[in-house]
Amino acid sequence: MEYVQERIATLHDFAAVADADDESGYRTGTADSDLVPDTAIVVPMTERELGNPAAERVLDELERLEPAPAAVFVPLRCGRDGIEPFREWLASFSLPTQLLWCNAPAADRALERAGIGDEFGKGRDVWLALGPAAEAGDYVLVHDADARSYEAEHVHRLLTPLELEFSFSKGYYARIEENRLYGRLFRLFYRPLVRALADEHDAPILNYLAAFRYALAGEFATTSTLARRLRTPPAWGLEVGTLGDAYDYAGFEGTAQVDLGRHVHDHRAVAGESGLEKMSREVGAELLRVLEAGGVEPEYETLPDRYRAAGRRLLDQYRADAQFNRLEYDLESERAQLDRYAESIAPPGSDRRLPRWTDTTIDPETVLETTQPWVEARPGTSASAQD
């Protein structure tokens, strides 16, 4: 256990360093946050989460929050036949849940009228929920539904920095499962890429991105003001894009990261359309876009080689850490992943981000109307929103 601070405030879990009744009077754990009733929670899902044990645990834990949050938004991407089973499943939990069918035909048409692109993915789904969530609460908390180790206490921990007048709070945790290190996309792609760039450039945005102990974690909390200013990429890259906006709005002084212990997640394959290799392309593009916007001009011709060199140095460190903790470590597999991810490094191309909620012509009420076709028409609902 350590207590080292980064360039951003780092809030540790010191529960392991002392017993609750030791002579110092130290008490473990974090205080319940008074912000929970003012908070809207966003939990993006797909059809695979229906009845999934990890998603069940997340919802069970959210039921334990006292008092209850202002709302729990579940932006869902699924086929038409999957909506009713999902509604019935969510209704079995005692939560103020609002299900948003993100690919509902009426929602797609409303976004098209607003001039918003037709790219789909997790980022777009979360963006759709951010507008209504920022209306429902003074604070917005976002997290995934695939952590089999999720606890209601994570909500309190993520909100505590906001109670201390930070504007943005990011979770971090250890990914140690099956007696080995996971968190591969962060360890083997994000971290060495940032390190390679920092070796050549001295820029505040690089120092900011390097300060996060798990920059690709899906868990964060923010004020509703900042939530309305997030320009999320439509697919993967959501987490990095969020950090770029947090840097612009909150900066070092307004940002904190919070220890959420150890997370046990579902795993992805490296190859394939939903694999880490494809994710690395989108994460890399968004990371490099954020850096270019922050004044960094990467030397793209040499960057893949410099990334590999930084990655190999990190592999030696990971191997030593694994051996020290008697964990399994497959050096050849990790080297092979480095080489595959290196092919993802390229100029980011055009900016594909969705607009800030403060800038778009679509409004949160329209999102609710078009993503909830099963709800009776609300007062003032337009015909075009319900068609």
Results as ranks from 00 to 15, higher is better:
153 E>I: 10
190 Y>L: 12
126 V>E: 00
191 R>L: 02
138 D>R: 07
141 L>H: 14
176 I>N: 02
146 D>Y: 04
131 G>T: 07
142 V>W: 01
178 E>F: 07
166 F>K: 04
153 E>C: 10
141 L>M: 13
173 Y>D: 04
145 A>W: 05
178 E>R: 08
154 H>P: 04
131 G>A: 12
138 D>M: 00
170 K>F: 15
146 D>V: 14
148 R>L: 04
191 R>H: 09
184 R>H: 15
152 A>E: 08
132 P>T: 00
128 L>N: 02
185 L>N: 12
157 R>G: 05
171 G>K: 02
137 G>A: 08
130 L>V: 04
172 Y>A: 09
131 G>K: 02
163 E>Q: 13
161 P>V: 06
173 Y>F: 08
187 R>Y: 08
187 R>I: 09
147 A>Q: 08
180 R>D: 10
186 F>T: 06
168 F>Y: 14
161 P>H: 08
191 R>S: 03
152 A>S: 13
163 E>A: 11
170 K>H: 12
151 E>T: 04
171 G>L: 04
139 Y>M: 06
170 K>Y: 15
141 L>N: 09
128 L>W: 09
167 S>T: 15
166 F>D: 11
164 L>Q: 10
131 G>L: 06
134 A>E: 07
148 R>Y: 04
162 L>H: 05
179 N>H: 14
181 L>W: 05
190 Y>N: 14
172 Y>H: 03
172 Y>G: 10
152 A>D: 08
169 S>Q: 08
125 D>P: 03
190 Y>P: 09
184 R>I: 11
144 D>V: 05
130 L>H: 03
155 V>H: 00
154 H>V: 08
179 N>D: 11
169 S>L: 06
178 E>G: 15
160 T>N: 12
171 G>W: 00
188 L>G: 05
147 A>P: 02
157 R>E: 02
151 E>H: 10
151 E>V: 13
136 A>P: 02
127 W>R: 01
171 G>S: 11
178 E>W: 14
180 R>F: 10
128 L>H: 03
150 Y>Q: 06
127 W>P: 00
134 A>H: 02
163 E>G: 12
128 L>T: 00
151 E>R: 15
172 Y>K: 06
179 N>Y: 15
181 L>R: 09
158 L>Y: 14
175 R>T: 13
155 V>A: 02
146 D>N: 15
186 F>P: 13
149 S>D: 07
152 A>L: 08
161 P>R: 00
150 Y>W: 11
161 P>I: 06
176 I>Q: 01
141 L>E: 11
187 R>A: 14
164 L>H: 12
180 R>Q: 10
165 E>D: 15
143 H>E: 04
156 H>P: 02
173 Y>C: 05
185 L>W: 04
182 Y>S: 06
148 R>G: 11
163 E>V: 07
175 R>Y: 13
169 S>W: 03
130 L>I: 05
145 A>V: 06
131 G>P: 09
132 P>K: 03
143 H>N: 12
184 R>G: 09
131 G>R: 09
133 A>C: 07
176 I>D: 07
190 Y>G: 13
152 A>P: 06
125 D>E: 13
149 S>Q: 04
144 D>R: 03
131 G>D: 06
145 A>E: 06
127 W>M: 01
161 P>T: 07
188 L>R: 03
178 E>C: 11
